[in-house]
Simulated assay, not measured.
Amino acid sequence: MTQVLSLWRTCTSIPVVGARVFSLAFARKAPYFSSVRPRFTVIEPNHAELVVRDRRRVHNHLGTVHAIALCNGLEAAMGALAEATIPPGRRWIPKGMTVSYTAKAVGDITCIAETDAEQWTSPDPDLPVRVRGVASDGTVVIDGVINLWVTDKKSAVEVAASAEG
């Protein structure tokens, strides 16, 4: 089990405040995510969800949740999914995001990231993560893909050998 998944399970075993403690710790590890104050609700292999609450600090000039705040929430959900899912000995890095804004984002938005288990063992390093943001009435307000580059970690011997020549 990965560190993120283990920490999630430990934190959420604490009634009422566990998910909040995890969310604060996650945002502290990647400080930019704290701009939307993500509240994680689900983290499991191949699936993660969080809520971006409707607050003035995430609004645009129309009073709706800003598209980039939504992208930030989607990326945080994807990051938690990737950390909870990646097999030992592998590493990931995001390499691109494609999204469509499909409706006005009004109210709290649940950001969802999903993959299929077989994607993580494929020899192809390109791994598309499906992402979407859903309003409380079920309306999908943003939909897209975050592409990851997943490779094997280099051993200390491989790193030393590549440094030599």
Score class of each variant (00 low, 15 high):
Asp137Val: 09
Arg53Trp: 09
Ile109Gln: 12
Asn147Val: 00
Ser100Gly: 07
Gln3Phe: 14
Leu24Met: 13
Val140Ala: 10
Leu81Arg: 11
Asp126Gln: 12
Thr139Gln: 04
Ala76Thr: 02
Ala19His: 05
Pro128Tyr: 03
Val4Ser: 11
Glu118Pro: 11
Arg90Asp: 07
Arg55Thr: 10
Pro87Asn: 04
Ser162Thr: 07
Ala103Phe: 10
Leu50Ser: 10
Asp54Pro: 14
His47Gly: 06
Cys11Ser: 12
Gly96Ala: 01
Ala67His: 00
Val36Met: 00
Thr139Met: 01
Pro45Val: 05
Val17Asn: 02
Thr151Arg: 14
Gly96Lys: 05
Ala117Glu: 15
Ala25Asn: 08
Lys29Ser: 06
Gly96Met: 01
Thr12Ala: 05
Trp120Ile: 01
Met78Glu: 04
Gly73Tyr: 10
Tyr32Ala: 03
Asn72Ser: 11
Val16Met: 13
Val58Tyr: 03
Ser34Phe: 14
Ser6Asp: 12
Ala103Arg: 14
Gly133Lys: 01
Cys111Asn: 07
Pro31Trp: 04
Val21Gln: 02
Gly107Asp: 11
Ile86Arg: 06
Asp143Lys: 15
Val150Lys: 00
Ala113Thr: 14
Lys153Glu: 13
Asn147Glu: 00
Arg55Ile: 09
Glu114Gly: 03
Arg56Val: 12
Thr64Tyr: 09
Cys71Lys: 09
Glu114Asn: 00
Ala77Cys: 13
Pro94Met: 03
His47Leu: 00
Phe33Arg: 07
His66Gln: 08
Val52Thr: 09
Arg130Pro: 03
Asn72Ile: 11
Arg132Met: 07
Ala76Phe: 05
Val52Gly: 09
Glu49Ala: 03
Thr10Cys: 04
Val99His: 07
Thr12Glu: 08
Arg91Thr: 15
Ser100Asp: 01
Leu74Ser: 11
Ser13Gly: 15
Val21Tyr: 03
Gly18Thr: 06
His61Ala: 11
Ile68Tyr: 13
Ala105Arg: 14
Val157Thr: 08
Val157Glu: 03
Asp137Gln: 01
Asn60Val: 07
Ser23Gln: 04
Ala77Gln: 11
Ala67Gln: 11
